[in-house]
Amino acid sequence: MKAFFSLIARDLKLAARQGSAVALSLCFFVIVIVLFPLGVGPEMTVLARIAPGVLWVAALLACLLTLDRIFQADYEDGSLDQLVIGPLPLSFLVLAKVIAHWLTSVLPLIIIAPVLALSLNLASDGVIAVTFALLIGSPTLSLIGAVGAALTMGMRRGGVLLSLLVLPLYIPVLIFGVAAVEAAVAMLPMAPHLLLLGGMSLGALVVGPLAAGAALRLALE
């Protein structure tokens, strides 16, 4: 257990020292969202109508951009070899890396999402809903993303391949994430959607570390 937490602590420390990486993905998230009013026009009702989808798609893309950070740096400097032969089982190793990724790369997006939601004229119920939906649904993004990141680790054009592998698997999260927000805006119960998102996160919690662990072992050989 000590190894598990020391690994998370190290990754958090690294992210804090290299704060620019987190700032960059936040900037990306903001810019993508700014593009939409510029693209579809500033009419408030239209923006409010597309806001849930825009927020979720931008969050998916911002998350996708940070996925290579999960393993790539450790792979390049040889740390990954040392982590793999260390005391942690592979699945827990992946889980620790995923938790650190979620805390450093996804949580900041969720924190500024309400501000961006307001700028898109989303109703206040929707703002709360989008925050909750992101909180519950986004672990799936990190967990499934870890599988893709492990499979494409060390490849020359891994980034493009990673998006092709991972984005189709993100679709259910997108659909139910948006549905939760739309339900909240329409004053309908959003609990069923959140439960489904939570269920997907739990499923990904089982499958993701196993598959990513197997992919890691393979990539190091």
Partner: peptide, 9 residues
């Protein structure tokens, strides 16, 4: 092996 992992996921 990599493709097999992907197919199963």
């Amino acid at each position: 092996k990599a493709a097999a992992i992907l197919a199963l996921v």
